[in-house]
């Protein structure tokens, strides 16, 4: 009986521990770090676009340059199978990503294109930066709509 109870609690702790272990796949935290750096730069441009802060051409250009390089970071090791929101806690990445990786990649490359256009105008003046900024937000939204779950 004692052994059985012990085995039971081992099984229970394994059941509890397994999702926690899966959580620790470093790719999840790493890709979330990447998105934080996107926001670090995108947010500066957004603040200027919305008039929350004054437009500064040098700062805007630097932020757009950063976004350009950040969105060129190779994604191939950031999205391993089994790191979706149904498999593990701590991520809002929808399983739909892995159902159609081609579309996910296509939406990411649309982001890269929009950022490249933004980079070419970000330092040219507020209106020019705004015109380049909008499509970047649209590219983010297209992917979030299809592939990001609600926050818990």
């Amino acid at each position: 009986m004692k052994l059985k109870t012990m085995l039971g609690s081992v099984a229970l702790s394994l059941a509890v521990a397994l999702p926690a272990l899966a959580d620790e796949n470093p790719a999840i935290e790493q890709r979330q770090g990447q998105f934080k750096l996107f926001v670090h730069n995108f947010g500066l441009l957004g603040g200027m676009a919305q008039g929350r802060m004054d437009y500064d051409g040098d700062m805007a250009q630097t932020a757009a340059d950063n976004l350009f390089h950040l969105t060129r970071h190779d994604q191939s090791r950031l999205w391993p199978e089994g790191t979706d929101s149904m498999s593990v806690d701590g991520t809002r990445a929808s399983p739909a990503i892995w159902d159609d990786l081609d579309d996910f990649v296509m939406k990411f490359s649309a982001l890269q294109d929009a950022v490249e256009s933004l980079q070419s105008v970000a330092g040219d003046g507020l209106d020019e930066m705004r015109a380049g900024f909008g499509p970047v937000g649209q590219a983010c939204q297209a992917c979030h709509e299809a592939y990001r779950d609600e926050a818990s």
Binding site: V39, Q50, G137, C143, H144, E145, E150
Partner: peptide, 18 residues
């Protein structure tokens, strides 16, 4: 615009609403 005050971008079922 779909941008939160923290400059997250709208997604999920709120995206079509925006």
């Amino acid at each position: 615009t779909g941008l939160t005050p923290d400059f997250d971008v709208v997604g999920g079922s709120m995206a079509p609403v925006v």
